[in-house]
Design a protein around this nucleic acid. Structure first.
Lengths: 107, 107
DNA sequence: CTTCGCTACCTTGCTTTACAAGATAGTACA
DNA sequence: TGTACTATCTTGTAAAGCAAGGTAGCGAAG
């Protein structure tokens, strides 16, 4: 059992939270997640996730030129996305508390 | 997006932790999880999970009669299961810290 | 005695989602 | 020309929770 299963339903919330802080593009998110302790989230994970969230109306994209390299797609969070982020945060806190409670029992 | 996706890769660790505390049977686990804040984990989730963990050698089962009702299958954790539980706990702490870190940034 | 409800277990098929692998391009420097 | 880095996207696979349904034992109410 790897740790990838644990990410399900969590990554999208994390991406939302990061984009809510500041406008970001996909490639940047990949490196940023690593800095936050997520070991090597692949681009094959991030890009489909971004497109999914855009389709759901949680984020919006605008293309802009890069000082060096191909064009970038910058994402921002919509009002719907902010609501979804709040809902995610609530769900996470609930789950986190429950698991913590269970794990502490046997320390 | 429901919260069920968040449970992936987490439920097995939680079941292991509960069984490590005391010998338990499947039906009991379903009610116990609810008490710990997991809203309504269905039996269609728990039983396949228990069989999977038994196949992996993490838990062992013994059938015993019930004071009232059909026979019960009591599970205990094997040494391999304890090791897996420790590994799960480590993974959880790491993930939990990372997500917490990301979510706190925008409070 | 039969019917209803609770206990207790299991199976099938569906859906979501992360990921490996690979494709496509633009820029820059040697 | 070729190598390296940036940047995006696609396809196919596998894992795992869950809804829905099935089987069966026991006890109490009618």
């Amino acid at each position: 059992m790897s740790s990838t299963q644990m990410l399900k339903g969590i990554l999208d919330g994390c991406l939302l939270a990061l984009i809510a802080e500041e406008e970001l593009y996909g490639y940047e998110l990949a490196t940023k997640l690593a800095a936050y302790g997520f070991s090597d989230i692949s681009e094959g994970t991030i890009y489909p996730l971004l497109m999914r969230m855009q389709k759901l109306g949680w984020i919006e994209a605008t293309q802009r030129l890069s000082p060096s390299g191909p064009k970038r797609k910058y994402y921002t969070v919509t009002p719907d996305g902010r609501m979804e982020l709040a809902a995610f945060t609530a769900r996470w806190r609930q789950l986190s508390a429950s698991v913590h409670h269970i794990l502490k029992e046997e320390s």
